[in-house]
Structure formats: structure tokens, C-alpha cells
């Protein structure tokens, strides 16, 4: 059966707010809205513990909590099935595209973060432990 992972659907963390300062693995500081796919890839390359995995959106269903959705991902080369329940405004970073959420209007309204619509087939940036390989 699929396993649940964070994030919790209770509230969205503060770092998605437009203007939040994000530190890359090499120490460079960027605003959350300026992050590019390469920033995640290069940061993971430097990391000894974490590696980037591609997580493809396979299904998006209504969640149990209000304003929540359950997203089923196919993760990594193993295509492991992982489900997460998140708020509809939770942004994921799509390779080559940038921030995307199930309800981009709400993400923009709450966090001023421009988002695309997250769709089945989108390939999101995710992390796994290197030792899990």
C-alpha cells in the first residue's frame, strides 16, 4: 500500500510566501519566487544525504479534510507509489516549469506566489535519501 509522507494538510509553511529568502546548498540566497529547477538540482548534487527524485503526478483526488487533496506520485526509477494529502494551495516545483499547485488562484491569493495548475503527468522535484537507493 502507498505510504503517507509530509507535508501535513494542516497549514502551509511560511517559506512559500513571496519574498521568503531561501539558502541554496552553496550558500547563495534567492527569493522563493526566483528559484529555478537548476537550483534544486545543483543543491542536491552538493548534498551528501539527499538526492533529487522525479515524482510524476499519477492521480489527484479529493482529500478527507476541507480544502485538501490527495496526490498520488510515482517516485524515482523504482516508480514507487506514494500518496500525500496536502492543502489545495500547496505548491510543488515542477521540472522546467516552476511552482504549481492544485489551486493556483488560492496559492497566489494567500502567498502572492505565482503558480501554474498542477496536473496529472507533471513531474515534480522531490527528495529521497541517497542511502535508499
Amino acid at each position: 500500500p502507498p505510504v503517507s509522507s509530509p507535508p501535513s494538510p494542516v497549514a502551509l509553511p511560511p517559506f512559500f510566501m513571496r519574498g521568503s529568502i531561501i539558502q541554496l546548498a552553496d550558500g547563495e540566497l534567492k527569493r522563493v519566487e526566483d528559484l529555478k529547477t537548476e537550483d534544486f538540482i545543483q543543491s542536491a548534487e552538493i548534498s551528501n544525504e539527499l538526492k533529487i527524485d522525479s515524482s510524476t503526478v499519477e492521480r489527484i483526488d479529493t482529500g478527507q479534510s476541507p480544502n485538501a487533496v490527495v496526490i498520488q506520485f510515482s517516485v524515482g526509477e523504482l516508480k514507487a507509489q506514494v500518496c500525500v494529502e496536502v492543502l489545495v494551495e500547496y505548491p510543488f516545483f515542477v521540472f522546467g516549469q516552476g511552482w504549481s499547485s492544485c489551486c493556483p488562484d488560492r496559492t497566489t491569493q494567500l502567498f502572492e506566489l505565482s503558480c501554474a495548475k498542477l496536473c496529472v503527468g507533471d513531474v515534480c522535484v522531490s527528495l529521497t535519501l541517497r542511502s535508499l537507493k
Partner: peptide, 25 residues
């Protein structure tokens, strides 16, 4: 003198979901 207000800095990996796949065989 006014101390500059410290701005929170978040590590890059906070923004990425940690999806640990189950070992499938």
C-alpha cells in the same frame, strides 16, 4: 542605534517534499 531586523532564511530542502519510496521488489 537600531539593530537590523533579522530576516528568516530557509534551507532549500524545506521547499521540496521528502518522498521516501517504499522498497518495491
Amino acid at each position: 542605534n537600531v539593530e537590523p531586523r533579522s530576516v528568516p532564511v530557509f534551507p532549500w530542502h524545506s521547499l521540496v517534499p521528502f518522498l521516501a519510496p517504499t522498497q518495491s521488489d
